[in-house]
Simulated assay, not measured.
Amino acid sequence: MGKLKQILVVDDDQDIRELLAQYFTKNSFDVITAEDGIEMDSQLSVHQPDLIILDIMLPGDDGFTLCQRIRQTSNVPIIMLTANSDEMDRVLGLEIGADDYIAKPFSPRELLARIKALLRRTQFANQDSVAEEANTKRRYYCFANWKLDTQQQVLLDKNKKVFPLTGADFQLLMLFINSDDKPISRDQICQSLHGRDAFANERGIDVHLSRLRNYLGDDAKSPNIIKTVRGKGYLFIAPTKSED
């Protein structure tokens, strides 16, 4: 049997931590928990979880702050828990680097399904990256003063400063780079990032696109990298070259 996937649950509600730990363990996951940012940092100093469940409402640093901190050094998949039905909480979570979100109250079964789907997409994205690298023997893609490292899943600017990408950001950027100068539809983006059960009109797609554009310094009104094509989707217009 292979090594179990490890999940870090960060929530100040002890009942939720114990419930999820028990449920995920029964479903063949290794589970570690933390009640706040301090304990989360302690766990991350000795563990490298495959996925993090991160509550927004926490004592001390909230989930948004912790998500931003994680994204400075890691592209580990993050699912945020929110007790607020307001769309802004969900949008903000996606904007700062979360890969998915689920509103409280939730069923552990639904959360487990989201975890498995996200891990599956992450695994497939990594496999596609490795397979593509093996076939093309290229590690880097250069465009618009950026260099994408497909092994490390990071961007380097012209000064060689490193910018880690989330799994979703990397997946979306690779989707554009491999588009062969053809527009990518919202349905294609939705399928790539969220799986078959997602809807192409969901706000999350706009958030992912906006975040990637902001990350690349690309103005949607006068784009140099990603252009909106009315009725067709989005076109990657930056000249791209690959390197070993």
Rank of each mutant, 00 (worst) to 15 (best):
F143I: 05
N159R: 12
D100Q: 15
K104V: 09
F170N: 01
L148S: 04
W146C: 05
D128I: 02
N159D: 10
I115R: 12
F124A: 07
V154N: 01
Q171P: 01
A134V: 04
L165W: 02
L155W: 10
A125V: 00
A113M: 12
A134N: 08
Q127N: 09
V162Y: 03
I102S: 14
Q151M: 06
K116I: 10
L148F: 14
R138S: 11
D128L: 04
Y140N: 03
Q153N: 06
A98L: 02
K147E: 09
S129H: 00
T166C: 09
W146H: 07
A125T: 04
R120I: 05
A103K: 15
R109I: 10
R114G: 07
K158N: 12
F143A: 05
K158Q: 14
L172Q: 01
D128Q: 05
Y140M: 01
R139T: 00
A103T: 15
Q153G: 03
S129I: 01
L111C: 14
R109Y: 14
E110M: 09
W146F: 12
G167T: 15
K104P: 06
A117L: 15
F124V: 07
S129E: 05
E110R: 11
P108H: 14
Q153H: 11
A134P: 00
L112R: 15
N126S: 10
A131Y: 02
V130D: 07
L165F: 07
